[in-house]
Amino acid sequence: MMPVTPTQTWQFRSPKQHLLRWVGWFWLIALTVFCWNLMTENTIWAFVADAPRQASDIGGRMLPPRWGYLNQLWKPLWDTLNIATLGTLIGVIIAIPVAFLAAGNTTPSRHFVRPLALLIIVTSRSINSLIWALLLVAIIGPGLLAGIIAIGLRSVGFIAKLLYEAIEEIDESQVEAIRATGASNVQVIDYAIIPQILPAFCGISVFRWDINIRESTILGLVGAGGLGLQLQSSLSTLAWNQVTVIFLVILATVIVSEWVSARVRQAVL
């Protein structure tokens, strides 16, 4: 180390930061390489090398799409929409109280209720809706209900998290003003908090609905109804030309739902 005199202190910080940065990058690269080696330990490279041939083979089977199959997809498509919509509804209904319990400025108890509400949010958010569906199919049997509840349970965390952040960001002076009129807690929520978070709430719900449409298209893979069920059966019979049709239907649905959600959010905000 070089001796550091007071006048030089500032100058010496820069190379030190530089060093720190390079060490950081070095570790990132080393870790990535290590992970890569660990991950590909059991990879059979012959399969990977074979991939272009496989791809062209599958591509060949996928085209031309079997358009006649489309007629069998309307009912599953309807089911998929219902899973997403009803699931979002359930999610919203549960998420609202959870969000109010989790927000620092509306929670009845910071030390007991709030952590509990945050735990619900984290649990719901960490577990993908497909895993929820997997569990629910095992528990209550295959069908739409499992899908709806799965979507609902996954949505709770998402909606509640964004909503409680919105609640924490409200303008407190409006709350104070309503409180000063002698309003009760319920009235404060009704008059001072809800008007402020309503646009955010609508935006979040529609946004989640849009995501749920995407997610509900594949829930059928584990038996929770909808388009995924058709996908599963087409895949298991290697009917790739039907898979193409399903993919296109999913793509169209996703595009339409994204358009709808963008329009609604625009109208609300």
């Binding site: 002076s173 409006q174 104070e176 003003a177 008059y191 001072a192 008007p195 402020q196 646009p199």
Partner: peptide, 9 residues
Amino acid sequence: FQEYALVER
């Protein structure tokens, strides 16, 4: 109030 504190929406 100072900043009116109306419920703006």
